[in-house]
Simulated assay, not measured.
Amino acid sequence: MSDAIETTEGPTVSQLAETWLSLRDRAEALVSERPDDPGAVANIMHEVEVLMIEIADYLNNLNHQRYTAERAHSKRRNAALSVHGKSYGVTIARAMADVEALPEQAAWDALRAAYHYAEDTQKALQTKHYGLMNVNKNMQSVIFERGRRQ
């Protein structure tokens, strides 16, 4: 692979980290929100839907960076393995290659952890959305029943 192919498209890891801080804060606020009237429920449901779409875009960009980091790790490890494999046995050469590729492994692991954390946040938002849908359905049922009794 040439270095031209290795260049990343889209946001950098630091830009993704800044974006995540904003998304995370909004998600935490929405998950902890306790609406008490039908208008608030509808507004929060809309905000949750919009945020879930934004997190899906974030996950897509993060996944791209994650696979780029994985390729960088693999490239560094394989290059080190080819150098050390000529002088040492396979076991020692692999161990030396693993040690040389530790910085790339750490970056790859950090991106994987960030991806899974964002994925769990999206699941929490989806749970909140389903709960709000149930509350909204129940409130509409109560309003409808009151109207029929009068």
Rank of each mutant, 00 (worst) to 15 (best):
I55K: 03
Y58C: 08
L59Y: 00
N61C: 10
N61T: 01
L62Y: 04
L62R: 00
N63E: 13
N63Q: 13
N63V: 00
H64I: 07
H64K: 15
R66N: 00
Y67T: 11
Y67I: 04
T68N: 14
T68I: 06
A69P: 02
E70R: 03
R71E: 05
R71C: 01
A72E: 05
A72Y: 02
H73N: 12
K75R: 15
K75C: 03
R76Q: 14
R77Y: 07
R77G: 00
R77C: 00
A79Q: 06
A79C: 01
A79E: 12
A80T: 06
A80W: 03
L81T: 00
L81Q: 07
L81K: 09
L81Y: 10
S82Q: 12
S82W: 03
S82H: 09
S82M: 12
Y88A: 07
T91G: 06
I92D: 10
I92N: 10
I92Y: 15
A93N: 02
R94T: 03
R94F: 06
R94K: 13
A95T: 10
A95I: 12
M96H: 07
M96K: 15
V99S: 11
V99Q: 09
E100V: 12
E100P: 00
E100M: 11
A101Y: 08
A101G: 08
A101W: 06
A101I: 11
L102V: 12
L102M: 14
L102A: 14
P103V: 03
P103Y: 04
E104N: 09
E104A: 09
Q105S: 11
Q105V: 11
Q105Y: 13
A106G: 05
W108E: 11
W108Y: 15
D109W: 11
D109R: 15
D109V: 14
A110V: 06
L111Q: 07
L111G: 02
L111A: 06
